[in-house]
Write a protein that binds this DNA or RNA. Structure first.
Lengths: 246, 246
DNA sequence: GTAATAGTGTCTATAAGACACTATTGA
DNA sequence: TCAATAGTGTCTTATAGACACTATTAC
């Protein structure tokens, strides 16, 4: 029997290239509100496999640049949108023998929420086109690369679910907003109307907003502008929005 | 400029061994209730790295045997416990340059709930010892391999959190149980007392249990035995257990 | 003034917590 | 009978939904 190795010796002889291991990547569903609907950022693949198909932005971990998985996610988001401090949450990992033609692969899916104002979308070497697309349209009519359709579904479900008991939609609005704008954002994601008084009571009682002092004027009564207190971007309510009683 | 490759040509020339990619594994926090406390299954590592340290059970994806990530998780669970149809849920993936001495690595963490009755723990070539250990003790006094301490914390947090609004603890009990036993299980995980009447109302109104007809006799009034309806193992309540009001 | 949107008062409904009460067993 | 645990009746509390009401602007 061979003499036992020390951990140092073991690591010295260890060569990852000798093993059959899965490809590992990060993919993101970056959501925003545009044109009164929930949209998601898609890139058109400029490389094989699935060249020419629309896909969620993502890519491989850069073992040199990235110290952690969340670094990879932030880097990808920054590359595509120029934004680097949005709401970012890991959702789920998808791994199987057949989700990528190159072989067994694992992808870690992230969900990001950003306000689309002032975002300049940027293509890079792996994508020839970048665009915002209606989530509803993508889910009903499109055919995304790999299993990105399923990944988008899971991220969208996670978002819809969390909107029932958190303040996440705040992250989809600019820094100053009115309560009506915030309510509309909740309604767009939930897909149901929300009762105005309950909504305002809920948000204001949570003490997560500050009046900025400014007012939003339009063609009617002006509305108070609010901004979010630091912890307000990820507040958890003790009860869910229940929706209309029939 | 080179002629463009077809996808077929691209895939033929693709060799995963040419790339620097992270190691990818699956680790599990397998929870049970034993001795009136929440315990987690640990294995003592028989191989480098971290040889001799206690760790969460887990291992690499077997590209031949496993078609999906969840296959890997089920396989690992079966290897250690002999159980293969428990409650199993993916929790989060952890990836970084320094969590494993062998290099950049990603692990997908799963949470499993099983009843410890009739489980025969089995060591294999990568673990010389397998044991149940109090979660409280592990978190307070032990030093697990890799970042398994952090992974256990996250899985434990996920469990505590979900117990507030789901029926998950049902999965920690044998097929027949009394309402008092179920309540105790909730209390052990939550770490707070639960009000008896509220608890029974909540569980029975949810219509997730069936009376088996049997009674559990002891030295006092016998208690009705219940079993779970098929969908009852993962019921979501519309409101959370709030705990005592002060 | 009117139209339109902002914002409030106050009722009901639902489900949780509190807690005292009754019920059924073994010894 | 008593100790112990099973199980219930019913009040209070917290927060959501309903919906009509008032407030403030542009025109």
């Amino acid at each position: 029997m061979a003499k036992e190795l020390t951990e140092k010796q073991f690591l010295k002889r260890y060569d990852i290239h000798e093993f059959d291991i899965p490809l590992t990547s990060v993919d993101m569903a970056i959501f925003t509100i545009r044109g009164g609907e929930l949209q998601v950022l898609l890139v058109k693949r400029a490389q094989h496999p699935s060249k020419g198909l629309w896909a969620l932005p993502g890519g491989f971990i850069d073992l040199k640049k990235d110290r952690t998985l969340s670094d990879t996610a932030h880097r990808k988001l920054l590359e595509k949108t120029g934004v680097d401090t949005p709401y970012l949450e890991q959702v789920e990992s998808f791994g199987s023998a057949d989700r990528d033609a190159r072989g067994w692969s694992v992808t870690v899916a992230y969900l990001a929420l950003i306000t689309c104002d002032d975002i300049v979308l940027a293509a890079d070497e792996s994508s020839e086109e970048v665009t915002w697309m209606s989530v509803e349209k993508v889910e009903q009519e499109m055919d995304l690369a790999f299993d990105h359709q399923a990944i988008l579904d899971v991220c969208h479900d996670r978002l819809k679910n969390k909107v029932q008991y958190t303040s996440l939609p705040i992250n989809l609005l600019p820094t100053e907003f009115t309560l009506t704008e915030l309510q509309k954002t909740f309604e767009i994601i939930l897909g149901i109307p929300v009762e105005k008084k309950s909504f305002r009571r809920r948000i204001l009682d949570a003490d997560i907003l500050e009046e900025t002092g400014g007012m939003k004027t339009g063609s009617n009564r002006p509305a108070k502008l609010y901004s979010t207190k630091p912890e307000g971007v990820k507040h958890f309510f003790s009860r869910s929005i229940e929706g209309p009683r029939r």
